[in-house]
Design a protein around this nucleic acid. Structure first.
Lengths: 228, 228
DNA sequence: GCAAAAGTGTTGCAGGTACACCCATGA
DNA sequence: TCATGGGTGTACCTGCAACACTTTTGC
């Protein structure tokens, strides 16, 4: 190609970080410290550095924001956004990553952010750029992945109970599940969870058994939310 | 950010175009006319232009390559590849698109390609750049989407028989299906296909009824390939 | 014992597989 | 009437939803 009619562009990663607090799905947001959209909430993220791969950039940004070790969270690419005017600073493509972390520690502000907060997804307001669309897309991916994969355990600490796991599904799907059928189904699915041979002290009622994440990644059969 | 340690980059789209010929899944490949990887097979694609959105760039490239009208094929974004050294020309991010076309007309060479061919996916050799990885990823997406969506009709011409549709599944999954159960299941799934009230002349046997694509996008219940 | 939460048994139904069988056409 | 592929009926099996019921703890 002789004429350079293609764009010289910058490429950023944006992070949709979900965690669960108090039975509700929360999203990690930062308050922007610089224009454009100064003081507006936005997704954490930043530019991909020279010589840096996309996933590495996403992991780096998440670590800067949460101080979490890379093997303590789930992260995967979701979609890339490239509308010509999505960012007033120029041509910026954004590769969105979905991250899921167990019981996130109190977040800290990053380089470009005034502060970071966890916000219940139901209360997320108008965000900077096209970030509302990015959140919607990532949430749909997370909801679908709970059906066919063991992704839900990524929301849980190292050991957890079946009820903990069920509350993950209920928070993400915003839908109640039958505790008894759920219990049976999780234990019947090979590799979903493995017995930790411990009981948790409980404030009331029979103490539940604790489990760890199993080795399976895909669920056979899936946990369908359909049956509307 | 004061220091510009992030990459100034170019962004390209690469197309994984599938079609079915003679009951086999085929992939559209071009022979590169310019370095790097000159004379090597590669995915069709090209740089995103100034002021052009990602999907528009992918549709444009596909039209240039196949002369097909935009509403005659299915296209969707799959994944973005950004390893620092994936392209020897410099920092180039590639957004991969999966496209599915019915009975592709003979392809033509594009601006950057010597020629274009349809190759059975089983016979795809070593491709330029990281394109083998891109094809593998896109194929897995296509296989999965056949389970949960009506994507298979995108491989079919305007009117088709249930057997045509079944052969799509068999080609993509590389697995034979029971014709009788498949038939019943497709007709039982609301909105998958609608009766075209025509019969096709057949060389032997009872003439099959013809159908058109229905309005449904998702399949309830899904067409599971599992049951290994 | 009573409350509370964990965990099990059972029944009815929806949907899948396997395969016997009937239908419509050309030669 | 036979071969061929389209299409239907049916029997068996798996897996889920619903919900009654039992178990194990703290008070």
């Amino acid at each position: 190609m002789v004429t350079r009619d293609h764009a010289q562009a910058r490429v950023a990663v944006d992070l949709v970080v979900f965690t669960i607090r108090g039975g509700l799905l929360h999203l990690l947001l930062v308050k922007r410290g610089n224009p454009p959209f100064r003081h507006r909430h936005a997704l954490p993220g930043g530019f991909v550095r020279r010589g840096e791969d996309l996933l590495d950039a996403a992991v780096r940004e998440l670590r800067e924001e949460t101080r979490l070790d890379a093997n303590l969270f789930h992260i995967e690419q979701v979609h890339t956004y490239g509308a010509p005017k999505r960012d007033p600073r120029g041509r910026i493509f954004s590769v969105a990553y979905l991250a899921i972390v167990p019981n996130l520690p109190t977040p800290v502000g990053g380089t470009d952010a005034l502060s970071a907060h966890l916000v219940p997804v139901a209360k997320v307001g108008k965000l900077a750029f096209d970030h509302n669309k990015i959140v919607t897309d990532a949430l749909e991916v997370a909801r679908t992945k709970l059906e066919y994969t063991t992704l839900a355990v990524s929301f849980c600490p190292e050991t957890f109970t079946i009820t903990d796991l069920r509350k993950v599904y209920e928070a993400v799907w915003e839908r109640e599940l039958d505790a008894r059928n759920f219990h049976r189904k999780v234990l019947a699915t090979q590799g979903f969870v493995v017995d930790a041979h411990r009981k948790r002290a409980s404030p009331a009622g029979r103490p539940p058994a604790e489990y760890r994440a199993g080795k399976a990644i895909a669920l056979h059969p899936p946990m369908l939310r359909s049956s509307y």
